[in-house]
Computed example of a mutant assay.
Amino acid sequence: MASFNHFSIFSLALLLLASPLLQVARCQSESDEAAQTTEEASDIGVVGDDVQDFGDETFDSAPGIDTITLFPKNSAKLVTAGEETELLIGVKNDGESSLKVIAIKASVHLAVDHRILVQNLTTQVFNNGKVPATAQATFSYLFAVSKFLQPGNFDLVGTVVYEIDQHPYQSTFYNGTIEVVEAGAFLSIESVFLVTLGASLLALLGIWIHGQIQNLSKKTKRAPKVEVGTRSTDASIDEWLQGTAYTQSQANKSKKKK
Results as ranks from 00 to 15, higher is better:
W240M: 14
K253S: 07
L216D: 09
I189A: 13
Q166V: 09
L21P: 03
Y174M: 06
T220G: 02
I164P: 07
A76T: 08
K147H: 11
S19I: 09
S249H: 10
V157P: 04
A183D: 11
I237D: 04
F193T: 14
D165N: 14
H167C: 10
K221I: 09
V195P: 01
S11D: 09
I164C: 02
D113W: 01
D43W: 13
L78V: 10
E83G: 02
E96F: 04
F193A: 12
L16T: 10
S140N: 08
R26D: 07
N252I: 07
F148R: 08
L121Y: 01
F4P: 02
I207F: 12
E39W: 08
Q23A: 12
L197T: 07
T85R: 03
I65P: 01
E96C: 03
C27K: 02
N128G: 04
V131K: 04
A235Y: 07
I68R: 06
L156E: 04
W208D: 14
F148I: 06
K100Q: 15
Q136G: 10
N153W: 05
N74Q: 00
F10R: 03
H167T: 14
E190S: 08
T220A: 13
W240C: 07
T196D: 10
K225D: 08
S200P: 01
N252T: 11
S98P: 03
S11A: 11
L87I: 10
T247M: 12
Q150G: 04
T67R: 02
P63C: 05
Q150E: 11
Q124T: 15
E83M: 12
S232Q: 10
T230L: 08
Y141W: 00
E179K: 05
N128D: 09
K105A: 05
D165K: 07
H109D: 01
K147S: 15
Q250S: 09
E182Q: 15
T172F: 07
V47H: 07
Q124K: 01
H167A: 14
A245P: 02
Q214H: 13
N93I: 05
L15W: 05
S75D: 14
L117W: 03
D60P: 04
E227Q: 15
N215D: 15
A34K: 00
F154Q: 00
L205Y: 06
K218S: 07
K221P: 02
S29K: 05
N127G: 15
A34T: 11
R231N: 13
T80E: 09
A133I: 01
N175E: 08
L70C: 05
T196R: 09
L21N: 09
T230N: 12
D53L: 14
Q28I: 14
G95R: 02
T138R: 06
N128R: 12
H167L: 13
V51N: 01
F59A: 04
M1E: 11
L99F: 01
E227F: 13
I116K: 09
I65F: 02
D49C: 05
D113C: 04
S97A: 12
F59G: 00
N153V: 15
I164M: 12
T244R: 00
N120P: 01
F186M: 10
I237Q: 05
A18M: 03
A13N: 07
